[in-house]
Simulated scan of single mutants.
Amino acid sequence: MHTVYNGVGGEFLADCPRPASAGGELDALWLGLMEPVKRVPDLVAATARLPQVRLTLVGDGPERERVEAAVAAAGSAERVSFAGFQADPAPYLRAADVFVLCSAAEACPMALLQAMACGTPVVATRVGGVPEIVRHGVDGFLVDPGQPEQIRSALGWLAADLPLRRAMSVSARRRVLERFGAERMVEDLLGVYARTTACAS
């Protein structure tokens, strides 16, 4: 068995300056298809008790009404924005202080890699290949799935520690540039083809 990780290319790797974030406040971003496995209500619950955190949800799907109901029930509608589907999510990723992946299951999520390529620190669940991508405490924080309190704690820590966010931003981007670029993915895939061909002959 050979593992070939997803690779990021194009505009996500463009060298763009990060926005100057204010200490004590945090713009959090979620990006994806709103379906049960993504557990977006967990993120809504986590941010409801963090008045310093603004949340933007980019994407749509069958769970949208449930997520909207969760926001209403949490009383945090003034701090939550629904951006809907976006063909080009890069501007949203670059504008965010942190990207949150709260899924119950993933493989090698492209949204996570795209966020890190843009220099956005991450809070992500320990599922699938995520721990192979994110180094806990270096590129962001890893939390257990289905645990909103752990998400809340990680976001609160990042909101309070601007130097840490900046350090994680640099580390996250470097991580993708060194290991998860599109060129590296192609090289790894060609290497698998070469080894397979050699064995067959």
Results as ranks from 00 to 15, higher is better:
91 P>D: 00
132 E>V: 14
183 E>N: 08
69 A>H: 11
172 A>K: 04
184 R>W: 08
94 R>F: 04
23 G>Y: 12
161 D>E: 10
93 L>E: 07
96 A>C: 05
96 A>Y: 03
116 M>N: 03
21 S>Q: 15
32 G>R: 10
167 A>I: 04
136 H>T: 05
38 K>S: 07
127 V>M: 02
43 L>H: 06
22 A>R: 15
37 V>T: 06
9 G>C: 06
183 E>H: 11
39 R>V: 07
72 A>C: 05
23 G>I: 15
118 C>P: 09
65 E>C: 08
77 A>R: 15
142 L>K: 00
116 M>Q: 03
24 G>N: 06
145 P>R: 01
40 V>W: 12
135 R>C: 08
44 V>N: 06
92 Y>A: 05
14 A>G: 04
147 Q>L: 11
190 L>N: 05
24 G>A: 04
156 G>F: 06
140 G>H: 01
136 H>P: 08
47 T>K: 11
185 M>H: 07
102 C>V: 15
45 A>N: 04
160 A>M: 05
194 A>Q: 14
188 D>I: 12
19 P>W: 11
8 V>E: 00
71 V>S: 00
50 L>V: 04
73 A>P: 11
117 A>K: 12
169 S>C: 14
4 V>L: 12
178 E>S: 03
143 V>I: 05
88 D>S: 09
201 S>C: 06
111 A>S: 15
157 W>A: 08
152 R>C: 04
101 L>T: 03
111 A>F: 13
169 S>P: 14
192 V>E: 06
186 V>L: 10
152 R>L: 02
186 V>D: 00
75 G>C: 11
180 F>E: 02
152 R>T: 02
112 L>R: 01
47 T>H: 07
69 A>K: 15
23 G>F: 13
149 E>I: 14
17 P>I: 10
13 L>F: 08
93 L>Q: 11
94 R>Y: 03
192 V>G: 07
130 V>C: 02
172 A>Y: 03
187 E>I: 14
68 E>K: 15
1 M>W: 13
152 R>N: 00
73 A>D: 07
99 F>Q: 01
100 V>A: 02
96 A>G: 03
96 A>E: 02
14 A>S: 10
130 V>I: 14
113 L>N: 04
41 P>V: 13
79 R>E: 00
135 R>P: 08
10 G>P: 11
69 A>I: 14
98 V>T: 01
38 K>E: 10
83 A>S: 05
120 T>V: 10
141 F>V: 00
137 G>Q: 01
3 T>K: 08
173 R>K: 06
65 E>Q: 14
161 D>W: 09
159 A>T: 06
103 S>T: 09
83 A>T: 08
198 A>C: 09
60 D>N: 07
175 R>A: 06
131 P>S: 02
55 L>W: 02
68 E>W: 15
141 F>C: 00
161 D>G: 05
170 V>C: 05
